[in-house]
Nucleic acid binder design. Structure first.
Lengths: 333, 333
DNA sequence: CCTTTTAGGTTAAACGTTTAACCCAATCTT
DNA sequence: AAGATTGGGTTAAACGTTTAACCTAAAAGG
């Protein structure tokens, strides 16, 4: 039998209300004597207040839902860590949901979070999503969209990253270092980051009057297997290039494998740059030149923004676009 | 104003109890007509039941606490994914806590999980822990310890891995492939896995009558920086060896960097094997030979065990020790 | 035809808190 | 000295469910 606030009250010889007040530090009107007595009893009995009961009254669970495609995708752990740090700093905890980018799983997650009455949701929408956002309209819980920026998504805020600027910088750097026949291995073109990185690539090529056509932009998905396969195919098809800008680091890893296999010398013969700067990028050999995303900060800022939105309940949607930084390592001259 | 079961009852012209029954499928005694009417109203209004209210009554939150050192440590994401999959399969969700292996953070997490009335806890104990386990005795929530096996920890179950067997197999393999002067770069010797891997190393050396002494077992921590530093120092100190068994993959990565820097040829001149088989191991170049831990399965099995324990409330503590498998790649002959 | 069973509900207590409203004695004000 | 304030509490309603116990009319049993 769990011990409740009632027993504490009885043991301390005060009312439940009084105990509640000392627990919640609303104790301006409680004498030090009573306060200490109650606290002592609490310590002795090991009483721990039941927050689900208190949530009934206060209408807040001090819990935030975190909906991401897959925690096993090396991009997300750091984001999650950032989110958890800010959350626990503010007295919140995180419920983690993996959606595998599947819309039905997303719906289930959101429904579950609604039932559990989380105070807010961080949401990385599936690339495929748009139509279904209808059902999101009625969640009645503040939502911040994270990383992806699906148009028409009914959210109260957004945290994204300067994808076009990042891509622009990366490709411009390649050009500056003397590469000129640059191709781009992308992720699924349905997702906003992909589109934006393509845009940045084009801008940079245009800005330096370098030619490119559709064959230079090769779609795949954000895995190393895809990077390997598309690179392989590109080489076999006789495509010429002296540098490849990859949609993310995983693609870059696969790409490099393929290049090595074909005996192409990374850096001299062909430069490679990735995107994300996951843990791996620094660990591999050669170390990967890449556009670094502030992953930890994204998570951190996201819950920061969420807390703001939750607090004010203002309707104006907030947005924060974080900067990327090119980190030059060993796969480019 | 959130819509409650009360309004559904009113709109459907039935009692609250009836609505509750159709929601929870205890509807054997409800006519199809009423059932359909109620369900229709629920759909129309977009009513979503408040699980925190229901938790008050049922005494279960359908939530599991997951306490790990750091989700950004590449070992854990897959474990967490396994746990989340099994949990959501069974209708549970996961609250994630990072402790950074710090005892005070652990205490805070556990206390928070208690307050939130989670139904069970998965717990990767800090290596430093033992004394404080006193406070764990009174949590009153089933706990499964994960990965680490601290003696005297008051838990209802354990999921670990065959560390000594894994290490034994790895070192034996090295010996079989003709390496003989094998050193071991370890993690902190306070942790059980470290101790067990050392034990496995020694067993294998002994079994093949190979000599080793204290200088062959070099303590560090489970980071690549540590692997680099200790390897570097070992080389400078003139230690001779032809293979190194690393306490985990991160150490192996650092170690390989140091070896490369000193111009030592991986595989021919010196073999390297890691432990864990994190994502990275397959991605690096050369691909790392390593002892693979069933990380996903660990998480999956852990919540499986937890659910069992929660169900039966039997006092007998359960244990499951999972097998490792040596995966030979490119850093050994 | 009387009794029992069944189908299809309803009533109300309980879960463990928070908090607005109230209370009373002692102290201040004027 | 009467009224107002203050310190230190208490009372009780409310939060949104679940569920055991109860109820009633119709059908079934004998």
């Amino acid at each position: 039998m769990k011990i409740t606030i009632k027993e504490i009250a009885k043991l301390s010889g005060v009312s439940i209300a009084t105990v509640s007040k000392v627990i919640n530090r609303k104790d301006s009107k409680i004498s030090d004597e009573t306060k200490n007595r109650v606290m002592k009893i609490i310590k002795e009995t090991g009483y721990v207040p039941n927050r689900v009961a208190s949530s009934m009254i206060t209408k807040e669970t001090k819990t935030i839902g975190l909906v991401i495609p897959n925690i096993a995708n090396p991009f997300f752990p750091e984001v999650v860590r950032g989110a958890e740090d800010k959350a626990s700093e503010a007295g919140y905890s995180l419920i983690l949901c993996n959606t595998d980018d599947q819309i039905d799983k997303e719906e289930n997650c959101i429904a579950m979070l609604q039932e559990k009455m989380v105070d807010g949701i961080l949401y990385t929408a599936s690339s495929r999503r748009h139509a279904i956002s209808e059902s999101l309209k009625h969640v009645g819980i503040p939502i911040i969209s994270l990383d992806r920026d699906i148009v028409g998504l009914p959210v109260q805020g957004k945290i994204t990253v300067e994808n076009v600027e990042g891509a622009f910088e990366a490709v411009s750097y390649l050009i500056k270092r003397g590469y000129s026949k640059i191709i781009h291995l992308t992720g699924p073109e349905t997702s906003t980051p992909t589109k934006q990185r393509i845009e940045g690539y084009k801008k940079a090529m245009d800005a330096h009057h370098l030619p490119y056509d559709d064959s230079c932009i090769i779609e795949g998905d954000y895995t190393s297997a895809s990077g390997y396969a598309t690179m392989e195919k590109a080489i076999r098809s006789g495509l010429t290039f002296d540098a490849v800008f990859c949609g993310n680091d995983l693609i870059a890893i696969g790409c490099i494998k393929a290049l090595k296999k074909h005996g192409l010398k990374i850096l001299e013969e062909v430069g490679v740059v990735g995107f994300d700067d996951i843990y791996l990028a620094r660990m591999m050999d050669p170390e990967l030149t890449t556009v670094s995303q502030p992953k930890y900060l994204m998570g951190y800022k996201a819950v920061e923004l969420l807390l703001e939105v939750m607090g004010e309940n203002k309707e104006g949607r907030r947005e924060e676009i974080l900067k990327t930084t090119l980190v030059v390592r060993e796969t480019t001259r």
